[in-house]
Nucleic acid binder design. Structure first.
Lengths: 213, 213
DNA sequence: GACTGTGAAGCCATTCACAGCT
DNA sequence: AGCTGTGAATGGCTTCACAGTC
């Protein structure tokens, strides 16, 4: 088992393997081979084995992997053996969708609070959560032990929101605003940019297609 | 100018440069250097020049790039000099957010229709759009010339929706369901998986941090 | 016989460093 | 002098292929 320098692509796939394993486990599958995982998630068997090898030897030669065990290992590696309190800032359509998005309220994640500075929104409810003003961010972040923030505000407010989050102990930010955040070295950020993905599609429909003429 | 084999990472960045250039243009900036673009979007200057070089020579040595021209070139390359009709399938919270998400109704994209098979939703309105039953997908897809589909349904329905889309002329699919779609060779698909990005954050907070102890 | 784990090879993307223009 | 465009070097990820194990 060697560690250090795990490619981010490996972590991405690990997250996908992990969810696939949960599905297998729910279906009562006991053992799975790298080839079956590969088939299920659309990568090569060697890739699956290489990825897992960054973290240990989880399989049995000639047999494969125990689904339940490997699922637990992947969850542990991804840090999902603990609970993570999330705060969402921005209660527009996107923030609303994210708050009610079931996928965020599983696998160790729990949305603790939603913030918005629009006075028309503060006080309204999204499911069990009341929309709070940003003025209460510091106290809520501390009480709820919020270490991950989700930014769902327009570009112009994104950096300001990030700064407030970081000042109040947030260690990692998932940013839906299409702008890069400038943050200290030790803060983790990732952007989710839906438009970029759309434009990859149109590029491929146009430009690549034109080349193969 | 050499072409063939443009890395997908280059296309991703091109989309980001393009949006950055729009911002510069709105602010009245005339000329920009690779270093300034790099600074603005968080990559290296050499990377910016290399990326652009895949598509031509757009700059002037000693000077830089003309903002308006380069913006137009990037839009053209990305296929955004034409209009793209989108159809969204799934009018749950995510579909609702996507339908009203302003970022999708700019840069050449236009949401033409929203579909859902829940009888309780069919007939309701999201802004200007009435939610349609999937039974009308074929005729609407044809009339509106829909070539791009967005899947915002649960995992269990995603493949079925993809099949219907493809049967009715859709060429590219943006899939928000966390499952790989199986599609013919010539169909473009990309997944937007928000949970994966979250799990990269928790991995980095946990695993990577543990290694540096 | 089947499947994992892994060094080596191959491939792809990024960075470097500088020649070429303005 | 300043900045682009690009071949060469580097670095990193993926695939190959096979030894090791059950």
């Amino acid at each position: 088992m060697k560690t250090l320098k795990v490619p981010e692509a490996t972590v991405t796939r690990l997250s996908i393997y992990s969810r696939f394993l949960e599905r297998l486990d729910r279906n009562g599958v006991i053992t799975v081979s790298s080839g079956e995982i590969a088939e299920g998630v659309g990568v090569s068997p060697a890739q699956v084995r290489k990825d897992l090898a960054y973290f240990g030897e989880f399989g049995t030669r000639g047999v494969g992997y125990n689904v339940k065990d490997l699922m637990k290992y992947t969850l542990k590696i991804l840090g999902l053996d603990q609970n993570w309190s999330l705060a969402i800032v921005g209660a527009g359509n996107l923030g609303f969708a994210l708050t009610t998005y079931h996928g965020f309220n599983v696998r160790g994640f729990y949305i603790s609070a939603v913030f918005d500075n629009d006075p028309a929104k503060v006080g309204q409810k999204i499911g069990r959560l009341e929309i709070l003003s940003m003025a209460s961010f510091p106290s809520v972040a501390q009480n709820e032990n919020i270490r991950i923030g989700i930014i769902a505000v327009p570009v112009r407010s994104a950096q300001e929101v990030a700064d407030i989050m970081i000042d109040n102990g947030v260690l990692a930010i998932l940013n839906f605003a299409p702008v890069p955040l400038s943050v200290p070295e030790h803060i983790e950020t990732r952007n989710v940019d839906m438009s970029v993905k759309l434009e990859i599609l149109t590029f491929n429909l146009g430009f690549r297609a034109a080349q193969s003429l």
